[in-house]
Design a binder for these strands. Structure first.
Ligand SMILES: NC(=O)c1ccc[n+]([C@@H]2O[C@H](COP(=O)([O-])OP(=O)(O)OC[C@H]3O[C@@H](n4cnc5c(N)ncnc54)[C@H](O)[C@@H]3O)[C@@H](O)[C@H]2O)c1
Ligand SMILES: NC(=O)c1ccc[n+]([C@@H]2O[C@H](COP(=O)([O-])OP(=O)(O)OC[C@H]3O[C@@H](n4cnc5c(N)ncnc54)[C@H](O)[C@@H]3O)[C@@H](O)[C@H]2O)c1
Lengths: 207, 207
DNA sequence: GTAGCTTTGTGAAACATTTCACAATGCTAG
DNA sequence: CTAGCATTGTGAAATGTTTCACAAAGCTAC
């Protein structure tokens, strides 16, 4: 398949969210323009994004909301659930694992690891915290698809190395540093200080 | 000033981080290639990014680390501190406000608002939680530059409207929805479910 | 002072993404 | 069945971003 831009994939996720909203309101059919209007983009962008994957609309009419929801689930790989391991049961980590929204969208936390003896053994969001020393033994049993890395930055790279060695191909990283991983592993880093700095730039240089 | 791409601004923030690391190690001078190597980009990219703002290096030698740190602080608007208001003292919100890293980078939480009577009056990260009903009265006194919005999604838009009305120009939003704001207000939305879906896409469609 | 080496700064080229614009299509009404 | 209308799907154009490649500059050694 032709290489799809990351910006396109992110918009598809957004469209899916809006479509589910429309579906909840009982709306049967939607035009590219109406979908675009909901998300701050343009109708041409919506149609182009979808056209990379096929032809889902009816000319003169628009898109069937349930059909497009289904198609986007297919495209984004959301027809299955994903098994997620959390590394670091700290403040951010526990907020994530206790959030109902992820399970609702098909991301199930199946394992939690920490180094702090005070946390090991306690349950968070229905999952028992394990010793990170057991990472290898436990994850080979658990078969996680995605790792969410929420440790202090000092240990993040070494934990990432262990995850890669275990065959993990997708990491969502919150530690404020650039993880080094092989090319076949996808890392998305959420760097909040960087977001604040981008806001500061816009305050300092208003257009 | 010529319009600068968002991707450029984000890389400048990264460069600054790496430079501070190098500075801490007592490194005096660095080439674009070495800086690029640290951050997974290319030397031409580094030089091009910097060239939008001026000429900071010495040919044949590279960049003075302290000088470039200073220049980037200037460019990104980090020579001053920013006053940040937090709206929503829940799990994510309290993790943010208790995190030392933000103050270290010049982002000071100066006000916290919540609706929950159990939270109002308690202190978080040294700041007392106020009733969100007092938002207008308190923020006009406090003069925040940036608002971090961490309420449930149902109320996020109405809180954002109040912030905009108070003259806030920068919002960091964690609620999983698209905020509608005037064009002169900058919003950065951190949507974690969307990040996970992008990872799912890559698992479903490996290249 | 000059030769040799390194590295910057930057137009130009290559590549990527978004926007435009319109033919093709299907629906509705009569 | 036909006319009129709305909307898709998509090449082509426009715009934006990254990479290339090289002249210009400065340092070091002699
Ligand atoms: N809290 C924030 O607002 C915030 C903002 C931006 C970035 N971050 C980053 O997110 C990460 C976590 O932040 P936090 O606030 O949740 O910190 P935290 O200190 O509350 O949690 C970190 C957790 O990681 C555990 N840990 C330490 N070493 C470990 C190891 N080797 N293996 C497994 N677990 C280990 C600790 O025991 C702790 O429970 C940090 O990298 C932080 O810089 C946090
Ligand atoms: N926790 C996560 O992992 C996670 C992940 C992704 C997104 N989010 C989003 O971040 C936001 C906060 O998440 P959380 O886990 O901290 O939720 P939370 O329920 O722990 O916190 C929300 C806080 O907002 C307060 N609040 C409610 N209405 C308010 C109002 N009108 N004004 C001010 N405060 C108000 C509540 O009292 C509560 O303290 C939500 O929008 C959530 O969807 C959370």
């Amino acid at each position: 398949m032709r290489k799809i831009a990351d910006s396109t994939v992110r918009r598809l996720s957004l469209y899916l969210r809006f479509l589910e909203e429309f579906e909840g309101q009982g709306i049967e059919t939607i035009s590219s323009g109406a979908l675009a209007g909901r998300g701050g983009t343009t109708s041409a962008q919506v149609r182009k994004d979808l056209s990379f994957f096929g032809s889902f609309g009816k000319r003169g009419l628009g898109y069937s909301v349930p059909e497009l929801v289904q198609a986007l689930h297919q495209i984004l790989g959301l027809t299955r659930h994903y098994r997620v391991a959390l590394i670091g049961a700290g403040k951010i980590g526990s907020a994530l694992v206790e959030n109902r929204g992820f399970r609702r969208r098909g991301f199930d936390f199946v394992a939690i690891f920490d180094r702090d003896p005070a946390k090991i053994g306690r349950a968070l969001g229905g999952v028992q915290v394990e010793d990170v020393a057991q990472l290898e033994a436990s994850l080979t049993r658990t078969h996680a698809d995605i790792a969410v890395l929420v440790t202090p930055p000092e240990v993040a790279q070494s934990v990432a190395d262990r995850l890669v060695h275990l065959g993990i191909k997708s990491i969502l990283n919150f530690a404020p540093l650039q993880l080094v991983v092989p090319a076949n592993v996808t890392v998305k880093t959420v760097n909040l200080a960087l977001e604040l700095e981008a806001l500061a730039y816009h305050l300092a240089n208003p257009n």
